[in-house]
Design a protein around this nucleic acid. Structure first.
Lengths: 220, 220
DNA sequence: ACGACTTTGTTCGCGCGTTCACAAGCGGCT
DNA sequence: AGCCGCTTGTGAACGCGCGAACAAAGTCGT
């Protein structure tokens, strides 16, 4: 009875689990103690059957005829995602976006804590955000090593993102969240998750325009 | 010769097309005139065959034995995505994140222009970002109507995001990019694209942790 | 205590997206 | 002009994720 579950959870499911976790926390704050899959699915914007399948990946935790215990489910998802252990993150590029990220309280409650903020501009160095002072780029490697940070966030201009990425990877960071509008090249064993705001907007715009034209198609 | 192509492009392909567009622009700026699929795929971080299939959705545009003409391909993708026409966007919530979005020059070059910045806080109203002044929330509907804005960006705190969303939808906005960590409910015909930074971080952290444990699995 | 209702957990079938592999086509060289 | 090598475009197989339908199970009412 060592490994009752397959150990592999689809990436799409993981992303949804994080959403469920958010919704469950909100429900718990509202005083709810149990939820049905239908209700939770509606709150998360997904299909009820899919939600149950997602939850089945982490073993049975619901009660038939009743639903899920909000607190217990939250606890279990939190454990599976590893959100209970605090993860050290470093953030490079303290512009408006970097400041927003450093300031965002939502990270702390999800198990992420910034242990270093870095910027190349001397005018930014020394500035305090949250309860952390911005440090010069020269301190990057030492901080990563000292804090054993496993996650790096890149919020720099595009033209320096690759070299920042190289330094992070060389320092031992294995996971990188990249907000710069470039595709990063990384060595084997490091994964990058790109978040490109222009891409998001363009997809959105395209879907909107595609939804608008079918009238023309009918005329053909 | 009315509709030589199927008219429907998979959403995943659209997202990648936006990336190709970015890479092509970068290549054009570097003076390149032609690229092979392999080269472009490597620069975009995807499989060469997949890239060719993606490109095939918009008709043949490459030359066999040579590759793709950088400028022509860029032009065609740009046209398909509708990036040539300027789209009016409104942005609600001018905190650090909102300021970062309003300031980001990359949107303009991709066919998006902000026509209104809104914030509930009187202290923010009047502040000028880019070349636009922040306006009070009361002006929201009038601005959307007057500019025929089709895209709304929500960068507000979570607790007001839903009501902002409702107002945008009621005013005629059909596409919404949501940075607030909540799942928005929208009427039929409106689509929302959520960008939740906590979710991104959690997925990244989970993949990293999942990659770290298989050693334990070997012992079993 | 028994029956019926509610809700979970799972299994099946479908459609999509991705990947590999091959044929067609074009340029360059002789 | 003809051949060769390179690259595109497409067809087919594979795998995965998604959605719907069914059986198990537990609770509430009588």
């Amino acid at each position: 009875m060592i490994q009752p579950r397959p150990r592999t959870i689809p990436e799409a499911t993981v992303a949804r689990l994080a959403v469920y976790l958010r919704v469950l926390t909100s429900l718990a704050d509202g005083g709810r103690t149990t939820v049905s899959s239908g209700e939770l699915a509606s709150a998360a914007g997904v299909n009820p059957a899919g939600l149950r399948k997602d939850l089945s990946h982490l073993g049975s935790c619901g009660v038939r005829g009743v639903g899920y215990d909000v607190r217990a489910l939250r606890e279990r998802i939190s454990r599976v995602l590893g959100a209970e252990r605090s993860r050290a993150c470093v953030l490079v590029g303290i512009g408006n976006l970097g400041t927003a990220l450093a300031d965002y309280a939502g990270f702390g409650s999800r198990g992420f804590r910034f242990v270093g903020l870095f910027d190349a501009s001397p005018s930014r160095v020394g500035q305090v955000i949250g309860n952390l002072a911005v440090r010069p780029m020269t301190d990057l490697e030492a901080t990563v090593t000292a804090t054993d940070a496993s996650i790096g966030v890149i919020a720099t201009p595009a033209d320096v993102a690759q070299q920042v990425c190289d330094r992070l990877a060389a320092a031992g960071v294995r996971s990188i969240l990249n907000f710069a509008p470039v595709t990063l090249a990384v060595p084997e064993g490091v994964d990058v998750r790109p978040v490109d705001l222009s891409v998001e907007l363009q997809v959105l715009a395209f879907l909107g325009q595609q939804r608008a034209v079918p009238a023309e198609e009918v005329t053909a």
